[in-house]
């Protein structure tokens, strides 16, 4: 059992961007309300989250406010974080995505408190065998993304950065809807094959 003191020491030594260190920071926030770990996460993710919200159509001041709200959520929910199931960046992405849906609601919502479902999905105990190191998975996906044909990477980025629907991507890129879908399908298929190889 790692004590909070040991975790804090570890955090002070490792202020780099290694995904495993980011995950350790997040665990430390959850277990010990560790402020220096929280600051390290903030320094790394706040400028990225600000870009994420600006790309989602938010003004700069509002993006700044959403970054604050994201980190209040991270502080509140860090105890739920399980490093065996998700890298810190993946977990924080889901919080930011849900907050964006909730606060920059161009798509509308389906129940009053839609975040409820996402929170449940995050709390839920998956019965999948998550023995593959999440840092390894993240690195593999990162490499795979750089190796995607540029037209597939483009539709992936439009989906995740600008939350463009299939129809919106088709209209922006002047492509048939079927082409957009098949590019997304090919890209996801390639990532899944790669992850399946890792799990063997």
């Amino acid at each position: 059992m790692v004590t909070c003191e040991q975790l804090t020491l570890k955090v002070e030594r490792d202020l780099g961007l290694d995904p495993r260190k980011l995950s350790a920071h997040l665990v430390s926030v959850g277990e010990c309300s560790d402020r220096s770990a929280f600051k390290a996460l903030f320094d790394h993710f706040a400028p990225r989250l600000k870009s994420f919200y600006i790309r989602s159509g938010s003004s700069e001041p509002f993006a700044e406010e959403l970054v604050q709200e994201t980190f209040m959520s991270i502080w509140r929910k860090a105890g739920l974080y399980d490093p065996a199931k998700a890298a810190a960046s993946t977990w924080i992405f889901t919080i930011a995505r849900n907050l964006r849906i909730d606060r920059l609601r161009k798509e509308g919502r389906f129940v009053q408190k839609e975040e409820f479902f996402f929170e449940q999905a995050m709390v839920e105990e998956g019965d999948q065998e998550a023995y593959v190191d999440q840092g390894v998975i993240g690195e593999a996906v990162e490499v795979a993304l750089t190796q995607l044909p540029s037209n597939q990477a483009e539709v992936i980025k439009l989906s995740f950065y600008e939350h463009a629907t299939h129809a919106e991507i088709a209209s922006r890129l002047q492509l048939p809807l079927g082409t957009v879908k098949s590019r997304l399908r090919l890209a996801f298929g390639r990532l899944r094959t790669l992850l399946a190889d890792l799990e063997q």
């Binding site: 890298a87 977990w91 993240g138 996906v141 990162e142 993304l145 995740f160």
Partner: peptide
């Protein structure tokens, strides 16, 4: 996971 990687890369 793709979302997490892209958030890191932004």
């Amino acid at each position: 996971v793709v979302g997490g990687v892209l958030l890191n890369d932004i």
